[in-house]
């Protein structure tokens, strides 16, 4: 009798265990499914399973937030910080709520079981720019200039930054990539600047910012900038000078009914040679006739 009861109890226990097992597996699978949907709707845009895209891969995330670190996962997703400076900031996922975020965490751990990280970002081969043909013109965020700057790269050693916001040349520099990434390395860039214009205004007729920038012509890789100050039309061609680290600015000025004194104040050890007019203490005086067409050669002194 007792043994019969025992068997019944044992069977009952076994049945209960099975039921518990299947229910819990069912709940778990359901949570995973929900976690997967939540991941697809809210996270997949930036986090892929195997590879770094906008943010780290699930493989990387799963290493950082193991099963035991669910709480840290919740802390981060509710209020993310920024670890990798090269990525964009992750938005907070607090609107999903902790129960949903826990399901996402479960899914992350599940989806990354025995999955290895693929190394390359996006899986794209990084673009390798071909060897440049000098000279060339390139618009870029540049240091010590407005975001509307234009780089005139004369050769592998010398370039200029011409700023379309103020319609004038800002500086000359030793050609280096650091000049094409905005203000990301100012200290490094500063050391490579060889020549810098310091006058508050270049053309005497009008404030630099009021000059209308009209664009540039591109011939043989060098630009002729076109701009207008009231009725005065100016073109400024920039070409390679007689030395590697030198440049020539060829100007035409139409519509001026007087001469002008142009302020060529600057920093840097250079020699400035105008082809017309009188240059004294960096002030270039031109008659009305000379102003119509003149050039300035600037050479870095070694």
């Amino acid at each position: 009798m007792i043994s019969e009861l025992n068997i019944v109890l044992k069977n009952l226990l076994l049945a209960l265990t099975y039921a518990y097992f299947f229910i819990s597996v069912g709940i778990f699978a359901n949570e995973l499914k929900q976690g997967e949907k939540l991941y697809n709707d809210n996270c997949a845009a930036c986090h892929r399973v195997k590879s770094f895209t906008v943010g780290p891969s699930l493989v990387e995330i799963s290493k950082k937030y193991s099963k035991e670190k669910e709480k840290s996962f919740l802390n981060w997703t509710n209020n993310p910080g920024k670890i990798n400076p090269k990525t964009i900031q992750m938005p907070a996922m607090s609107h999903l709520g902790d129960p949903a975020l826990k399901m996402v965490h479960k899914y992350v751990l599940h989806a990354t079981k025995s999955v290895k990280e693929t190394k390359s970002r996006h899986g794209f081969t990084p673009f390798k720019r071909p060897e440049p043909k000098y000279p060339y013109v390139k618009r870029s965020y540049m240091p010590f200039a407005s975001p509307a700057a234009i780089a005139v790269v004369l050769n592998d050693q010398f370039s200029l930054s011409w700023d379309a916001s103020i319609k004038r040349l800002r500086y000359g520099f030793s050609t280096a990539n650091v000049f094409f990434s905005g203000e990301s390395a100012l200290d490094k860039a500063e050391k490579l600047i060889l020549y810098k214009e310091t006058s508050s205004q270049f053309w005497p007729f009008i404030n630099d910012e009021q000059i209308e920038y009209q664009g540039y012509k591109l011939k043989d890789g060098t630009p002729t900038f076109m701009y207008q100050a009231g009725n005065i039309h100016i073109t400024e061609r920039i070409i390679q000078g007689p030395k590697v680290r030198s440049f020539v600015r060829q100007f035409t000025v139409k519509g001026s009914n007087s001469g002008a004194v142009i302020d060529l104040s600057h920093d840097g050890n250079v020699t400035i040679m105008p082809n017309k007019g009188v240059l004294e203490r960096n002030q270039l005086t031109l008659t009305e006739k000379e102003l119509a067409q003149f050039s300035i050669t600037v050479t870095m002194n070694d």
């Binding site: 509307a148 379309a164 009209q214 664009g215 591109l218």
Partner: peptide, 24 residues
């Protein structure tokens, strides 16, 4: 990023030679 530009092939050689500022 800096402007709306018109790329004009003035000499009709198939390559733009004017980068005209339409609006900045």
């Amino acid at each position: 990023l800096s402007e709306l530009t018109r790329l004009i092939d003035e000499d009709k050689d198939g390559v733009a030679d004017v980068y005209q500022n339409v609006s900045d």
